[in-house]
């Protein structure tokens, strides 16, 4: 901050009153001063403002406004209904067979996809955690499903699980299951369609979760394994007794993540229908999920109010299930606290 500087006086520090200041200098000082104060005090807010404004308008507000809509008669095809519906949409929900069926399907698919997905991810992660040749390529390879659009992969699986010329039935036939004379109809009943959809979900997310686990595994201090070796723990035991408890926070994170994702399953059940636009999830709703039902109620039946009520119900269900899963996983994976 010396006066020998020819460059513009730094606004960074309170300029000490200098001798021989002209009024013009002073004016410039105060202007700089103000700019500096503005920069220090308000600039941070300006920098975070775009995030908060955009998030509020397109994220938070719709979520809250959804509550209002759920209390209204909001039919796109019938604007003459009274404005408020009170709790009508919610009471209708309780007696709606479609809703309970969709809830049942959602949970069925959720269980069939989440449990194998996370267990297999754990196995893949522990394999990737070895000293490997071409390490990066293995890691990139397991991400192939992650970057593939679900729309695209579901279409492949749709053909894969087709009744007559599908590869799934052909392969099972080699093992004497089904066979060409008695092929499995993957779209005819709940269990088979759930398995088909769960396969798609598992395929998509195993690699991604494996990388999350791998990241956590690599931050486990190495000497922990030495102690385990002294106790004579084999590799499999080490995985369960040491690795899993040590990466427990990430395990919890993935459980929550796949709960949130799994209960909102939409694209897979949508495109598993042979006509991707009808949103019924099978001829009798064999695999219709809640997210799919919300879409159907809102944009096929044009009843947005009811769809909003359903969204809220789903939100609560997700909260409860995520909570239960959190506690369960915490116990199972050996957390003491």
């Amino acid at each position: 901050m010396s006066t020998t500087r020819a460059a513009p006086t730094p606004p960074g520090h309170r300029p000490a009153p200098e001798r021989g200041n002209t009024p013009a200098d002073e004016r410039r000082m105060t202007w700089r001063n103000r700019l500096y104060r503005f920069d220090m005090r308000y600039m941070p807010y300006l920098m975070i403002a775009p995030f908060f404004v955009l998030f509020f308008v397109f994220g938070l507000f719709p979520l809250l406004f959804n509550a209002v809509v759920s209390l209204r008669n909001y039919r796109l095809d019938d604007p003459t209904l009274p404005y408020w519906a009170g709790l009508d949409n919610f009471s209708r929900l309780v007696g709606d067979e479609d809703f309970w069926n969709a809830l049942y399907n959602t949970f069925g698919i959720f269980l069939l996809s989440t449990v194998p997905q996370l267990l297999l991810a754990l196995v893949v992660a522990s394999l990737l955690n070895r000293k490997l040749r071409a390490q990066t390529w293995w890691r990139v390879g397991v991400l192939l499903p992650y970057i593939t659009p679900i729309v695209a992969s579901t279409m492949v699986f749709s053909v894969f699980f087709s009744r007559e010329f599908g590869m799934a039935n052909w392969a099972l036939g080699l093992f004497g299951v089904g066979g060409p004379d008695d092929p499995i109809d993957w779209r005819a009943d709940k269990l088979h369609s759930w398995i088909a959809i769960a396969t798609m979900v598992n395929w998509k997310w195993i690699g991604y979760n494996a990388l999350l686990y791998l990241a956590a595994m690599q931050s486990i201090p190495r000497d922990v394994y030495e102690a385990a070796a002294i106790d004579g723990a084999g590799q499999w035991k080490q995985l369960w007794r040491i690795t899993v408890p040590m990466i427990q926070p990430v395990v919890l994170f993935t459980v929550i993540l796949s709960t949130i994702g799994g209960l909102q399953l939409f694209t897979e059940p949508m495109l598993f229908d042979q006509n991707a636009q009808i949103a019924t999830g099978g001829p009798n709703g064999e695999w219709q999920t809640i997210a799919q039902l919300i879409y159907k109620v809102g944009w096929k039946d044009l009843n947005l109010g009811y769809a909003a009520a359903m969204s809220w119900a789903l939100f609560l269900i997700i909260l409860v299930v995520a909570g239960i899963n959190y506690v369960l996983t915490n116990r199972l994976s050996g957390g003491k606290r």
Binding site: F51, F55, V57, F58, G59, L60, F61, P62, L63, L64, F65, N66, V68, V69, Y74, I256, I260, Q264, F266, A291, I294, G298, L304, A307, A308, S311, W312, L314, F315, I318
Partner: peptide, 19 residues
């Protein structure tokens, strides 16, 4: 910001459509 990480925004989709 951290808390909003966990908000499933798909649930506001009906209202988003109206907005």
């Amino acid at each position: 910001v951290v808390l909003t990480l966990t908000v499933p925004n798909q649930l506001g989709i009906v209202a988003l459509y109206i907005v």
